[in-house]
Nucleic acid binder design. Structure first.
Lengths: 231, 231
DNA sequence: CCGGTAACATGAGTGCGGCTCATGTTAGGA
DNA sequence: TCCTAACATGAGCCGCACTCATGTTACCGG
């Protein structure tokens, strides 16, 4: 019988979620070790046995909780996504953006902050499509990666702020997330702190796209539902 | 085919380039087998021994020409990049685009055509950052992936068409390529022929960005050298 | 307090796939 | 015709992801 808490994280990537208190700490330690190792040597050179060694658990224990190396990274990415959404929530409450473009700037800023401060986040973030299968939680509907991220961002934007909904909003946000993610990953490839020019460019790109697609909130032009970007 | 051709491909990813005629055919066969296998099972499930088997060569021969599995994929990606640039050149000659936005549409169209017709291209294209190290040809300057693609596209656009150059053009093209690449990969993730809505959206995204950044050719506004996108 | 059961723990071992290397064969020039 | 370098070969090595048989601890009903 369950000793403690309700599962806040999606459990699609873990083999067995710790039920007793003693194993909860080990569970987190394994994720921490994974994150540290990702920063040190990268995903390919990371070995599961080294993760286990750094976490101070035998290799068998690791495989009791995670389906494998990829699932381990996925679990870390899921934890990071929750952290990201929490931080974004706090940022939205501190100074609520007025339109989608400003909201996009918030998202970019928080993403950059995560890259700079959260262990393992620079090496493999929740949008990372490494092996093409992170976040493929639902085999049939194939919800994965940035699609999930975009979904969560939409919910956050529609509840926290009450930005206007829009037909096709899902696709627009998905495209924006995918594009920004690519440029931002590029910005952090060669510089630990991120290339500021490329970061700015990512923000410009997504702001321009969202403004053109969803319109400013002050002059809401709801005509041209599927029209092109008129720059 | 000449006996000994000048190396048109960058040789950074091959261990030994075939000098004698007999080995040239095998070289290509190995790349073809790699491409077919990528389509069949994907990169992770692809084994070098199976590539060798399908190409009809012993495993040792494969490793005489390629540094390893990753280098094999990289060599294929390099070959695909050359094919892509040739096709793009032909497309430009057939109907030359007038500005950067139209040129971008050409690039997107040809990229989609490649995804649909070239074996292995859907699974791993030249912009694919699988393992994060494709096209890292130059260890010191770290020229890789889409950075190289953007470079080649710039040369092609400035020579074939004579579009106006621009300060910061390199970065703008790099961002455009990275963004479009991400969205297009998404478009082809779940549909062999590509999601037409997402393809259209990728085109919209990059057209809008380039128009805002580089301006239309008819009203060339060279003011605001580093200014934001005014949508 | 005492079993009983399920969660938890352990690490030697297995299978597999990337890659090597010692040895043999062919091509092309002098 | 011989010599050298390019080419060819496949059994085997090595490292790593992952398993499994066996043991230990926590929790609960009685």
């Amino acid at each position: 019988m369950p000793e403690v808490e309700s599962d806040s994280l999606p459990s699609g990537s873990v083999r067995r979620r710790p039920m007793q208190r003693r194993s909860v700490a080990r569970f987190e330690r394994m994720l921490d070790a994974c994150a540290a190792l990702l920063d040190d040597v990268g995903y390919d050179a990371m070995t599961t046995s080294e993760v286990a060694r750094r976490a101070g658990v035998p290799i068998g224990t690791l495989y009791q909780f995670f389906d494998g190396k990829q699932a381990l990274a996925r679990a870390l990415a899921e934890r990071n996504l929750e952290v990201f959404l929490e931080r974004l929530h706090a940022r939205f409450e501190a100074s609520p953006p007025g339109d989608w473009a400003d909201a996009a700037s918030c998202v970019v800023a928080e993403f950059v902050e995560m890259k700079r401060t959260v262990p393992g986040f620079a090496a493999i973030d929740f949008g990372d499509a490494r092996a093409g299968k992170l976040f493929m939680l639902d085999e049939e509907r194939q919800v994965e990666n940035n699609q999930l991220v975009a979904q969560r961002l939409k919910e956050l934007a529609l509840t926290d702020l009450n930005l206007p909904d829009d037909p096709g909003l899902d696709r627009v946000l998905l495209v924006a997330v995918e594009a920004a993610d690519g440029v931002l990953r590029l910005a952090f490839r060669h510089r630990l702190d991120g290339d500021p020019d490329l970061i700015a460019e990512a923000e410009t790109l997504v702001r321009g796209y969202l403004s053109a697609r969803l319109g400013r909130i002050d002059n809401e032009q709801k005509n041209e539902p599927t029209g092109g970007v008129t720059v």
